[in-house]
């Protein structure tokens, strides 16, 4: 009404025109039960199990936020194939079930599975008349595995997969120096267990042993980082939390080979630390601690 007493007529006619135009177009309704929908790639319908890949490692069951995965397994001994060889043990899956009444389709189990035993399947018709029938056992999950589509080709503009990118990276020139530094700091190590923040954690020693079996999935992602020197270290430093673990690796080479300095925030903080503490051992420790949120007050009390 602001542009004149009859401006609204144009608006009303516009509304009629819009609906009339839509009417001439084909409807976008998908007649679902008669015509199956054209699902987009990577559709997340149900979770399918490739039994052959499963090692009953329980990672999926443990990562599941609502504990809807049930796994039973037992150990079988495989007799040694060569005379005098050692018998081997193997996990045999007895039961693998997912309760889809509880599952919230977050996909964490699929992410967590180290051996690609779990996959998203585009099947979505899993309605049941009884909620108890939604607990699907391995046979059904395995049947869905046949519906897993082949992986989509990568987008041409996408960055290389992490594995490729890592393998193509030129070797770091500073690595020998880091080895030297690791060797040099060894004498200083015994100090560390005395620090209260560290000593308070009883779970440390077991964690240090666990990676040998369970953190393997992450290994292939960063093979160049695994240094023989670090592996041989008896101390728990590299096996802190994920983000905590990266900090020392970025910072550790820095202290001796400062001129290179690839602008990491920890790297900027590291050269200052020796100025105050004046000791090689602390320069190695401080960045580690500073990036560890639990122990932040530890060095504050120290300094």
């Amino acid at each position: 009404m602001s542009q004149g007493p009859f401006a609204f007529v144009a608006g009303l006619a516009g509304g009629l025109r819009t609906t009339a135009r839509t009417m001439r177009r084909t409807a976008i309704t998908q007649e679902y039960p008669d015509v199956l929908p054209d699902l987009p790639p990577r559709s997340r319908g149900v979770i399918a199990l490739v039994e052959e890949n499963c090692t009953s490692c329980m990672l999926c069951a443990r990562e599941c936020p609502d504990w809807c995965i049930y796994i039973d397994s037992h150990k079988e001994t495989i007799p040694a194939t060569t005379p005098g060889g050692r018998d081997r043990q193997r996990n045999v899956l007895d039961r693998f079930a997912i309760d889809f009444a509880l599952c919230m389709y977050c996909g964490i189990c699929i992410e967590a599975c180290p051996f690609d035993a779990l996959h998203w399947s585009p099947v979505f018709e899993l309605a049941e008349t009884d909620i108890r029938d939604l607990l699907h056992e391995r046979d059904r999950l395995a049947k869905w595995a046949q519906t897993i589509p082949p992986p989509q080709p990568l987008d041409p503009a996408a960055p290389d997969p992490a594995e490729l990118a890592a393998s193509r990276k030129p070797a770091r020139p500073a690595r020998p120096a880091a080895d030297g530094a690791a060797a040099a700091e060894r004498p200083a190590r015994p100090e560390r267990p005395e620090r209260p923040a560290r000593a308070e954690r009883p779970d440390r020693p077991p964690r240090a042993e666990r990676p040998a079996g369970e953190e393997r999935p992450e290994r292939p992602a960063r093979p160049p980082r695994v240094e023989p020197a670090e592996r041989s270290m008896p101390l728990p430093r590299p096996q802190t939390d994920d983000h905590g673990a990266e900090a020392p690796r970025a910072a550790a080479p820095e202290a001796p080979a400062a001129p290179e300095a690839p602008a990491a925030p920890e790297a900027a903080a590291a050269p200052e630390a020796p100025a105050t503490a004046g000791e090689d051992a602390t320069t190695q420790v401080l960045p580690t601690v500073a990036s560890d949120p639990v122990a932040t007050d530890g060095p504050g009390a120290q300094a």
Binding site: T19, A20, T22, M23, R25, A27, I28, T29, E31
Partner: peptide, 10 residues
């Protein structure tokens, strides 16, 4: 029917 088709439905 009119309403559906005017809204792109069936």
């Amino acid at each position: 029917k009119f309403m559906a088709h005017m809204q792109g439905r069936l």
